[in-house]
């Protein structure tokens, strides 16, 4: 019980730390740091998505950058066509571009959901290392596809000149944009929490531990895992859409295998299968990048050492160190 309480306390601190940091930076007039906190929230959101597949479903996806990138491109392409005044698709129905965030998010969710359905349907036939490798391969496939489509900038990427709007809010304001990112992050954590506690979530955890046993009680593991994989991809895609709005630029590197590795890092650094862990992971990553990156360009050397240390000596990530082993994983 004490550990349970410790985890609640830590979660509360983490949840409040982000808006506190953003407000402080805003009060000091440091808009760069407000954006930096938004970045943490967005990357954490990508991690929350992966955590659903990885932490609760035991699916080690090394290709979540594909969904992050697809989300970014979906939002970017809608904004691009809105700027151009041309339709996104003209057949079978005409869909015009729209420089509106909710439209971009919806597009990201639909596109990533469909992609995850196809990728998951094939990948989930395999398991173990094969699953890791096939998700990586699918991500590479989408990466090369993005590189070779000249309409949307190919390898050079797509520049978004204006941040898309949000009805009733001034989204170009850094603090407002942070609030949107944070709201979505908390919503995704809430959804994950509800899923984890539901009958579906129990079955998912069962599938990650012992598929035969789950099948023996009459639940087929494959559809459960596939649905979880799709939801996971959709959450990560929304993060991608937000990232595109944050930096105003979409490029194939968002889908590169290194990005998949980084999303994994957010989850593992924080603690696999812990609700709030991706926030810690993303925050540490960005802190290292900002602090050490300010001293030397070679900050990833230090990141590598830190990461290696965590894997070898601090299993369970930061959450594991703070509150002990997870109760369910």
């Amino acid at each position: 019980m004490a550990k349970h309480r410790a985890e609640l306390l830590v979660n509360l601190v983490i949840a409040l730390a982000l808006p506190a940091a953003a407000l402080t930076a805003w009060a000091l007039g440091e808009s760069f740091y407000v954006s930096l906190v938004s970045r943490v929230a967005i990357l954490a959101l990508a991690g929350v998505g992966l955590n659903l597949a990885l932490g609760y479903g035991g699916m080690v996806s090394f290709g979540h950058a594909a969904f992050f990138g697809l989300g970014a491109y979906a939002a970017g392409i809608f904004a691009f066509h809105a700027f151009d005044g041309t339709p996104v698709i003209s057949w079978p129905i005409q869909i015009m571009g729209a420089a509106s965030m909710p439209v971009g998010w919806l597009a990201a969710i639909v596109v990533a959901g469909l992609a995850a359905l196809a990728i998951g349907a094939i990948s989930l036939r395999t398991s173990g290392v094969y699953f890791i490798m096939i998700t990586l391969a699918f991500a590479q496939m989408l990466y090369y596809l993005a590189v070779s489509i000249p309409t949307y900038g190919g390898a050079d990427g797509l520049i978004l000149y204006l941040r898309s709007g949000f009805p009733g809010l001034d989204s170009s304001d850094d603090l407002t944009f942070f609030a949107l990112c944070y709201a979505l992050l908390m919503l995704a954590i809430f959804i994950t929490w509800r899923i984890a506690g539901s009958r579906f979530g129990m079955a998912l955890r069962g599938a990650s531990r012992n598929e035969e046993r789950l099948a023996a009680v009459g639940i087929s593991p494959y559809p459960i895992k596939l649905v979880a994989f799709c939801i996971s991809a959709m959450i990560t895609a929304v993060a991608g859409a937000l990232f595109a709005e944050l930096v105003g630029f979409v490029s194939p590197t968002l889908m590169a295998w290194k990005m998949s590795g980084e999303i994994l890092i957010f989850v593992i650094l924080g603690g696999v299968g812990r609700l709030y862990a991706p926030i810690i992971g993303a925050a540490i990553f960005i802190l290292l990048e900002t602090l050490i990156g300010g001293i030397t360009d070679r900050w990833q050397f230090v990141l590598g050492l830190v990461l290696l240390g965590v894997v070898l000596f601090a299993r369970g990530g930061v959450m594991g160190a703070l509150t002990g082993r997870a109760r369910h994983v």
């Binding site: 080690v60 994994l264 890092i265 593992i268 696999v272 990141l303 990461l307 894997v311």
Partner: peptide, 11 residues
């Protein structure tokens, strides 16, 4: 495998 992926990624 997850630990192996991460450790070798850091390498």
């Amino acid at each position: 495998h997850l630990d192996q992926v991460l450790a070798t990624f850091s390498l």
